[in-house]
Amino acid sequence: MTILKTAPTTHTWCGETLLVILVVTCCARTMMRWPLEPLNMDIKSMMLFKQVQMPILTLVVSLASTVFAQLERDFAEEFAAPRSIMTADAGAIRVVPLASGLANPFDLAFRDNGDILVTERYTGQLRVIRDGQLLPQALTGVPPVYGEVFRAGLMSIALHPDDDALVYMTYTKAIEVDGEPEQTVALARARILEDRLVDAEEIFVAAGLDRGIAAAKLLFTPEKHLLMSIGGAYMYMGLGGYAQDPAVHYGKLLRLNDDGSAVADNPFVASGEHLPEVYSVGHRNQIGMDYHPDTGELWAAENGPQGGDEVNIIRPG
């Protein structure tokens, strides 16, 4: 409702559509409450009731399907056009849709040939946008991704700075602990050959257990090391201590070589205070990272519970 009121639209029937949806919903709820064999009815009345009930239910379902399909087409057409969005600090920003048909896109990477690689979180697929069109087939060869839990799945993607056919991906991995199914976060590397991935290999697996909210973002540093954030340190699942736990990678920012090993001068390698891959501790879910173009500082956006999102400048330790 709010979206329809605040977003500009070229169609005039949205209000009528919402009214029809409400009527259809009420009819469906009423019909579903009717017993299939009402009490206190003689045989003739019951047969007549059944003859009327099923066609009405069929009509309600058909009408609802038609209405929702039309509404979906309307939204797709509406948001396919460029639009301006007002912001508090930068004024109007022009937003131009590039492609549609993606399912829960999480991250993207740009190749030198113009292709845009997009990860779909819950499907575990790696999609390609080429010449402004989403290719119908996903790239094959993606490692097995566990996506049976809410917010688990295929996550970040990064291309090697010296070879943009070398792809790095983070994803949720199914594991077994003491005979019980569990999950963690893994990092894989593969090579793009035509429209498929080849030579895929798992080069890092996080220590600790994931409960489905451990976002993992990738970013190559100017020195061509690979930063990998691993979230999952949140309080309501009783895992808030993960962010300071020296035995797990969760709630940390890692710095890796391009083969998945720890960088030799990481801040905790010498002391052993934390795992050698750890670059920074005390984080929740970092899903955006980049270097400031003027200062060279590493900035990271971090999701907080019930609001409380942060933008932090990351320093070693």
Rank of each mutant, 00 (worst) to 15 (best):
W299Q: 00
D290L: 03
G147W: 04
L134S: 11
S280A: 15
I21W: 13
A188Y: 07
L48K: 14
R196M: 05
G208C: 10
H292Y: 01
A206R: 02
G153V: 01
T2M: 07
Y122S: 14
E273V: 00
V20H: 11
C14S: 10
P246A: 08
D42A: 14
L209I: 03
L19E: 11
F106A: 05
F268G: 01
D309N: 12
F49C: 02
G231K: 12
V142A: 15
E223L: 07
T221K: 06
I85C: 04
F68M: 10
V269F: 06
L256R: 08
G153Y: 05
A28H: 15
L193N: 14
A7C: 14
G308D: 13
D199K: 13
D162T: 06
V269L: 04
D178R: 12
L22A: 12
D210T: 02
Q133P: 01
G141K: 10
Y250H: 09
I93D: 00
L154D: 10
L48F: 14
L187V: 00
L275C: 03
G232C: 03
D199V: 07
E176T: 02
L227S: 02
L59W: 15
H274N: 10
D259M: 05
V281K: 13
I213K: 15
L154Q: 10
D290E: 09
P144K: 09
M169Q: 12
L36W: 13
F220P: 12
G260I: 01
